[in-house]
């Protein structure tokens, strides 16, 4: 082995080590992202807001414009609900608080979809 060969071997080992570390780092990051309670709010099929429900003592109301009229969403602790909405059936308001992964509030007339991201690696749920 010449000196150049040794450098080459060392270089390759170094690159390999870095890739393993980066891969694991990425992997861990994506894993932790799946956990935590993330609430997503979509209007007319577009994601407009993502809220981290794991933040302690969070209290907030969000006013937004649905397809039929205004709506107010309330966040308290790690739960979220439709406080009021301009829609005829009020199904979304009666749904009450949600907070568990996979739960959702859908207001069809206003085209508002609020859901908690799932952490269970399911692709979908039939219901």
């Amino acid at each position: 082995m010449t000196k150049a060969d040794k450098y080459l071997v060392a270089g390759i080992l170094f690159v390999a080590l870095i890739s393993v570390v980066l891969f694991h780092h990425n992997f861990l990051l994506s894993q932790s992202r799946v956990e935590g309670g993330q609430a997503c709010i979509e209007v007319h099929g577009k994601l407009i807001k993502k809220i981290d429900l794991s933040e302690k003592g969070r209290k907030e109301t969000i006013k937004l414009q649905g397809v039929m009229g205004p709506a107010t969403i309330e966040i308290a602790g790690n739960r979220i609900r439709m406080l009021d909405a301009h829609c005829p059936d009020q199904i979304c308001v009666r749904r009450g608080w949600i907070g568990k992964p996979g739960e959702s509030i859908v207001c069809i007339p206003n085209e508002i979809n609020i859901y908690i991201e799932r952490g269970d690696m399911l692709d979908a749920v039939t219901r």
Partner: peptide, 18 residues
């Protein structure tokens, strides 16, 4: 594809996975 079947008695809960 992993498809959950909703628990009819409990919101946000899964009864089985297909």
């Amino acid at each position: 594809w992993r498809i959950g079947i909703k628990n009819p008695l409990k919101s946000g809960d899964i009864l089985a996975v297909l």
